[in-house]
């Protein structure tokens, strides 16, 4: 076992276990903090796959942004106003059927797709290539997404002002 295997199993265990606890824990603040470890583990696995840029963007956006926002929401509503947010189980049978069907669909996709595998060395740097792709080949899509996000931002601000 070399160091990469050890690191992979470490991150895989972190991701899997924390994701499991996110779903099962009754305390919503715990769930949010377990989500932190899930995001972190996923970022580690991205690095091992050679996608270093995506890993770091994952950390910046999910850990540094979305998770913190989520924690803000949870903390401000859960403890200060002493309203218990309900995290119990409702409608077990329909939920089980739905989840089972979806899992079956996913497993079917996973097994019957002919995955394209090419043996290449891991790219040493991905940032430059990604930058060129985003700002030349997919420039229009990229800019449109930017405008879409801006519209969402302005909309949120104007709703919050009412």
């Amino acid at each position: 076992m070399n160091i990469y295997d050890a690191i992979f199993y470490l991150f895989a265990v972190v991701t899997g276990l924390s994701a499991f606890f996110v779903v099962t824990t009754r305390n919503i603040v715990y769930a949010a903090f377990f989500l932190l470890f899930t995001f972190f583990g996923v970022a580690g696995i991205y690095v091992l796959l050679g996608a270093d840029f995506i890993a770091i963007v994952q950390l910046i956006i999910y850990v540094g942004g979305i998770l913190i926002l989520l924690l803000f929401g949870v903390m401000l509503t859960n403890k200060i106003t002493s309203v218990q947010i309900k995290t119990g189980t409702l409608q077990i049978v329909p939920a089980a059927v739905g989840v089972g069907l979806f899992a079956g669909f996913l497993i079917a996709v996973l097994t019957y797709t002919e995955w394209k595998t090419v043996d290449t060395a891991l790219p040493l740097t991905t940032t430059e290539f990604l930058g060129v792709m985003l700002l030349q080949e997919y420039l229009v899509v990229f800019e449109l997404l930017g405008i879409l996000l801006l519209i969402a931002l302005i909309g949120a601000a104007s709703i919050a002002r009412r």
């Binding site: 932190l36 770091i56 850990v63 540094g64 913190i68 924690l71």
Partner: peptide
């Protein structure tokens, strides 16, 4: 000597924020 050293430093400081929130809560 990762290629994204600067962004990496900014990114891991996100963990500090989460830790501070955790301590406060």
């Amino acid at each position: 000597t990762i290629d994204l050293g600067l962004l990496f430093i900014i990114a891991v400081s996100g963990l500090v924020v989460a830790g501070i929130l955790m301590a406060g809560w």
